[in-house]
């Protein structure tokens, strides 16, 4: 890098750098914590930013991987990961089935009706789970879905569908109408045109919706904690805080490792699809 480039970019680094440090610090701290032995972590004489091995530490050398391997072998962590992926994947499918046609139709509906239905759907996204979990928990028990992952599969689309319809509406609006007209001229029906022409070009947008739908499911805490009571049926967001904290005993290293793994994976996905997300988000009701 040349000196002038450094100077012209200097201001960006000067501003972005401190923000990045503050925002990412908890994750740096999680990595450091996850690798320490108990003897190292709970010794107030040690510098917390360094790894210090004490002679005769029953856990041996610090840093160590034993607390990370603990969550994989001694807890239901893998099960929670599986449960989360299972619920997330099913919800993604349900969401796409419902939201793709709706998003497309709303993007093409001109006039006030389309506009108000679109906005109406979006507004339901503002009704929070914290308001709905009480009545829904009664409904779930009436349906006999208590303590089953299917209860989450049923309930999560209530917040993923509105959000996805809105994003998809934004993406579909950016696709020129002539494209499907041309396809229909060639003898396609509207549905085949949709399936063969429109959906394939919207693939990046659809993938974005998949990612955000999935992460909304991973994030849910309220429904998962009210509907699920058996440890092996839990999802990540609830399993980690309820099972790795036993009364007053916190398995800090394992807790940190359990948090890091899904966070970093999701952040990589987010960052890769960020520009697409921005496009859909601002294109939704605001264009």
């Amino acid at each position: 890098m040349t000196w002038s480039a450094i100077r012209s970019h200097g201001l960006s680094y000067l501003i972005v750098g401190p923000f990045a440090i503050v925002l990412a610090f908890p994750f740096y701290w999680m990595v450091t914590t996850a690798l320490k032995t108990n003897g190292d972590l709970y010794n107030l004489a040690n510098v917390p930013f360094k790894f210090t091995t004490t002679k005769g530490d029953p856990e041996g050398h610090s840093p160590t991987l034993r607390h990370i391997s603990f969550i994989f072998h001694q807890t239901h962590y893998v099960r929670w990961l599986e449960n989360t992926v299972f619920v997330g994947a099913l919800v993604v499918v349900i969401t796409l089935v419902l939201a793709l046609p709706a998003g497309y139709a709303l993007a093409r509906l001109s006039g006030r009706l389309g506009q108000s239905v679109g906005v109406g759907i979006f507004l339901t996204y503002l009704v929070p789970p914290t308001l709905l979990f009480l009545p829904l928990s009664r409904v779930i028990s009436k349906l006999g879905l208590e303590d089953r992952l299917w209860s989450l599969v049923l309930v999560y689309p209530s917040f993923t569908v509105p959000f996805s319809v809105w994003l998809l509406m934004g993406f579909f609006r950016t696709i020129p109408l002539e494209l499907e007209d041309a396809a229909m001229m060639d003898g396609c029906s509207r549905l085949t045109a949709l399936w063969r022409v429109i959906f394939p070009i919207s693939l990046p947008g659809i993938l974005t919706v998949v990612i955000f739908t999935f992460s909304l499911c991973v994030n849910d805490f309220v429904y998962a904690i009210s509907f699920i009571s058996t440890s092996s049926n839990r999802t990540l967001s609830v399993g980690v805080p309820t099972d790795l904290i036993r009364g007053d005993v916190f398995f800090w290293q394992s807790l940190m490792a359990a948090t890091l793994i899904p966070s970093i994976l999701l952040a990589l996905l987010y960052n890769s699809f960020l520009n697409r997300f921005i496009e859909g988000f601002t294109g939704g009701a605001f264009r």
């Binding site: 972005v16 923000f19 990045a20 925002l23 990412a24 908890p26 994750f27 992460s215 991973v218 994030n219 805490f221 990540l236 967001s237 609830v238 980690v240 805080p241 359990a258 948090t259 899904p262 966070s263 970093i264 999701l266 952040a267 996905l269 987010y270 960052n271 960020l274």
Partner: peptide, 11 residues
């Protein structure tokens, strides 16, 4: 910068 947003809140 997006890490805090991507990480599940509870965790």
């Amino acid at each position: 910068i997006v890490l805090p947003w991507a990480a599940p809140v509870a965790l």
